[in-house]
Design a protein around this nucleic acid. Structure first.
Length: 254
DNA sequence: CTTCTTACA
DNA sequence: TGTAAGAA
């Protein structure tokens, strides 16, 4: 029995797939020690070390092509800077992952705090002050069009995560706002708000809900102040297929 | 049973 | 990158 090992033994030893080892060979970065009579690729310790280095450099983010060119002739300073770069890269990746993790937590948390579709009622809620930045105005009768989003492609970094605030006032236009720290196009003060979550199939249903909302406030004798605010968190609609989720708000005078 | 090659998603 | 099929 030879001291060399087969491709599958090497694969298990190094925790990679057989396919990947053959792929490295095809790319010319790792050749077997020799080919046995039965055409089996056989590998010795040299190949094991070489494969270790290849896998390490791959973790550093180098392409197989780069590895092929570099593996034999890299200076120690080059290797060092390679590792430094890899360190910076993975730190950046960690930051990214942390952000998406935070986002996921936030979404789950918010999802827990909205009423179920079949349990929509009116609430009196206390809200913290929020600052809104005007995005653009649109016709009160109209609804968001894709065209408008592109035309006003203001600096909305991640639209699909943003809370879109629609402000309906006495005029016949609707102000579209996004939440932004320090903005003061519209400031919703801290205090009590009449709130209702609504789910609609098509945006046309919104008008009814809005009228209903006003009617309810009137009927209950709730004095309100300021525009009716409709908050759209598009990601919440993910949880209710075929339906869009909105929250209607009226600031109440205490 | 294992590997090789080739093709394919 | 993983999977499949036929051949050795």
């Amino acid at each position: 029995m030879s001291d060399e090992i087969t491709i599958s033994e090497l694969a298990k030893l190094m925790n990679v797939s057989v396919h990947q080892i053959r792929y490295f060979e095809e790319k010319g970065v790792l050749n077997p020690a020799y080919i046995a009579e039965n055409q089996y690729r056989m590998y010795g310790v040299d190949e094991i070390y070489r494969l270790s280095h290849i896998l390490l450099l791959r973790k550093m983010g180098l392409s197989v092509q780069m590895i092929k060119e570099c593996l034999s002739n890299l200076t120690t300073v080059q290797i060092t800077s390679l590792f430094r770069q890899a360190l910076a890269d993975t730190e950046a990746a960690i930051t990214q992952l942390q952000q998406t993790k935070n986002l996921i937590s936030k979404l789950l948390h918010e999802k827990e705090h909205i009423p179920l579709e079949d349990q929509v009622t009116y609430y009196i809620v206390t809200r913290e002050e929020i600052h809104l930045s005007l995005w653009f105005h649109m016709e009160a009768q109209g609804y968001l069009q894709a065209r408008q989003l592109t035309q006003h492609k203001g600096n909305i970094p991640n639209l699909f995560e943003a809370d879109i605030h629609y402000a309906y006032d006495e005029t016949d236009t609707v102000g579209i706002y996004t939440q932004k720290e320090g903005a003061n196009d519209l400031v919703l003060p801290r205090g009590k708000y009449l709130s209702r979550h609504v789910y609609v199939h098509i945006e046309a249903e919104l008008k009814e809900h809005i009228n209903e909302f006003y009617a309810y406030a009137e009927h209950q004798g709730y004095p309100y102040h300021g525009p009716l605010i409709m908050v759209e968190k598009s990601y919440l609609s993910l949880f209710t297929p075929e339906k869009l989720h909105y929250e209607l708000l009226l600031q109440m005078i205490e």
